[in-house]
Nucleic acid binder design. Structure first.
Lengths: 237, 237
DNA sequence: AATACAATACAACTAAAATACAAATTTACA
DNA sequence: TGTAAATTTGTATTTTAGTTGTATTGTATT
């Protein structure tokens, strides 16, 4: 196997952060002094300072010269629900992520789907409707179309695991995903499946995923629960 | 172990790539040093470097002189640039990008704005409403709140140019922007200002921008024209 | 002759620790 | 109430080890 590690100061920063969150520290509450933190984590004070600097820049804490370092009341909800890349929509931080396959069928695609997948008239596709939950609560509804030709041995079992891992193992080389983010109003069906109470606007990500050679292997529509799943973006200058 | 068809460095590059994916390495994690990789794959360091160079050009990893080589979290960052670099994008594609300042006033902020900016009760803020157009057509409406204390000499003239350039020139160090992308239904006022005909859902980006000492210097809401401005995202594996 | 790869040496840079001291704030005590 | 001492963050410098960057030379293969 392989070792990938975070820089020490980054590890310390993460520890401090999780400690703050775990302790549910409130606005203005002081965190241990730099010297104490250095002792606690058995690193030098310089490393602690570097870690602290990161958290200051994130807005989680602030420090006062000669006094101490304190938790910001206005802690920016930070990368908890951060939009992750491809597969790992919900990282390990989440509680009990689970999948529920609502539909799985081999069908004749509509013309628009055929166009998206760039396939011929007589080719069939899998249609998969999958609900993704965290803590038993529905978060994401995904509709996915996959050409039968490419994945003749697709099964419900596979889809309960990671779809992309399966594709990787088949020797395909996933390359890019072209997506379009659109705001929509949920249909009644969608509202029912995501347990939405009111017809508020929500986000839909429409995407095509390709292999190295340009083959489009998936067309999908992903619907995000408007309250429970928000899109936090962090950009750096 | 190695095939003979592909160049060795290309094979090594592929191997590193799959290892990174297999390990589910996250943003900022360090991969083994070039020397170690050379040992692991039993090739010379030069070959490793060449492989690494390929992956760097792909954007999968980046290396820091004297420090190490790290996995880049570029998966999302590309998206963000699309959101952020609006003027640049437009100036390339469309003609005549322009700004129109609809409102510019020094006011007492509401409590929610005060909280976002993390300022006291008696501090005033600038409120700026700006319309951004391409070819004379409104595309984006931006509402921005800036603490008066930080920018006592802000003017309409400045805002017609690049706001961030102005801030840069003042010697401030812009660091990060934390944003939240939300779908909304436009108000009547918003519909009028963006020349919208129907009350379709649209996107709103709510953001706080910070200096590198954590000071929040701007709270803004940006509304995107739902038809003329769509969000294309490209993510790579 | 050109290309791909290996081997080697060294330069430039970084992370982290260790240390010392300055500056601001808090605390203790007269 | 003042004032000095203690505490805490801010800044600077030095050292050590480790990593990437670069240049050069050698060696097969085509």
């Amino acid at each position: 196997m392989w070792e990938t590690t975070l820089p020490l100061y980054q590890q310390v920063a993460n520890k401090i952060k999780t400690d703050i969150i775990a302790n549910d520290a409130r606005d203005g509450e002081a965190i241990p002094t730099e010297t104490k933190l250095a002792e606690m984590y058995e690193v030098s004070r310089v490393t602690v300072r570097r870690a602290v600097k990161i958290l200051i820049e994130e807005g989680l804490i602030y420090s006062v010269h000669g006094s101490g370092t304190y938790v910001s009341g206005k802690k920016i909800e930070h990368d908890i629900y951060k939009l992750q890349g491809f597969t790992e929509e919900m990282s390990g931080l989440h509680n009990n992520p689970s999948n529920e396959i609502l539909e799985f069928q081999l069908t004749v695609p509509s013309e628009s789907v055929r166009e998206y997948l760039n396939i011929g008239e007589n080719q069939k596709v899998y249609y998969v409707k999958r609900l993704r939950l965290a803590d038993g609560q529905p978060l994401i509804l995904e509709e996915s179309y996959l050409p039968f030709e490419l994945f003749p041995d697709l099964s419900v079992d596979v889809l309960k695991q990671s779809k992309y891992e399966f594709i990787d193992q088949k020797g395909f080389n996933i390359s890019k995903r072209y997506a379009d983010l659109k705001p929509i109003l949920p249909s009644d069906e969608l509202m029912a499946q995501l347990h939405l109470e009111t017809k508020d606007p929500m986000l839909c990500l429409e995407a095509c995923a390709t292999f190295d050679d340009g083959t489009i292997f998936e067309y999908s529509k992903v619907y995000y629960h408007p309250i429970k799943y928000t899109f936090k973006l962090v950009s750096e200058k």
